[in-house]
């Protein structure tokens, strides 16, 4: 118990210290969310829009992003304002990773096992990186039930750390998408409906991002 308190105090202290020194370096905006919510597709969309190049590979196979990826000096402009930041794409947060799930996507057993192992490390890394963020876009799949523990844990942790956030209700191009469901599930948060795949409503997202920072 004492050790836990010491660890918590240590985490808080290092968080405060990193925040003080963060002011002097570039702003970091992180993409967080559950697995397959379209974080990398959104990262690619942002990078294509402003840098003309993609950031990483997106896939229907879960846990395609298993390591933190950063794109530096992304400059976005909206309504005469501009913002330069480092964009951080993170592995999807999950409470379970079963290698057998990957077999359904045609992966061989050894590949599936190795993907699962890398994915678990990715989740841990993503959680550890939370403290380094200046702002987070919480990317949710608007075709799925938003009230699940992963979403609640991400939002709760960002609130506890006082990190500004914007909920991105992704996949607006899909027929059963519902941004209203996400708004109703998380009242009190700013929610913006987009399609990272088609680029729908990205201008609004950039505008909201600039307002938040």
């Amino acid at each position: 118990m004492v050790l836990k308190h010491i660890r918590n105090l240590k985490n808080r202290f290092s968080s405060i210290v990193s925040r003080i020194f963060r002011k002097k370096r570039d702003i970091r905006i992180g993409l967080y969310g559950p697995v397959n919510s379209g974080k990398t597709t959104l990262a690619n969309r942002i990078c294509m829009d402003w840098l003309g190049e993609e950031m990483g590979s997106a896939s229907v196979v879960p846990h395609e992003t298993r390591e933190i990826q950063t794109k530096e000096k992304v400059q976005i402009k909206s309504n005469g304002k501009s913002l330069t930041f480092n964009l951080v794409d993170t592995p999807g947060i999950a409470t379970k990773i079963d290698f057998e799930d990957f077999l359904k996507f045609g992966l061989k057993k050894t590949e599936a096992k190795s993907r699962a192992k890398e994915a678990t490390r990715g989740v841990i890394e993503a959680i550890k990186w939370l403290d380094r963020m200046d702002m987070v876009l919480v990317v949710l799949d608007s075709t799925k039930d938003p009230i699940n523990q992963v979403n609640i844990t991400i939002l709760g942790n960002l609130d506890a750390r006082n990190i500004p956030l914007l909920i991105v209700s992704n996949k607006a191009d899909v027929r059963k998408s519902s941004t209203t469901k996400i708004r109703n599930a998380f009242p009190g948060y700013d929610v913006i409906g987009i399609s990272a795949k088609t680029g729908q409503n990205m201008k609004d997202l950039y505008g909201s991002l600039l307002k938040k920072l």
């Binding site: 918590n8 947060i93 999950a94 409470t95 989740v123 841990i124 959680i127 550890k128 939370l130 523990q149 609640i152 844990t153 709760g156 942790n157 609130d159 506890a160």
Partner: peptide, 10 residues
């Protein structure tokens, strides 16, 4: 608490 939830996930 959120910190406890993320710790248990880790």
């Amino acid at each position: 608490k959120p910190e406890e939830e993320s710790e248990i996930i880790e």
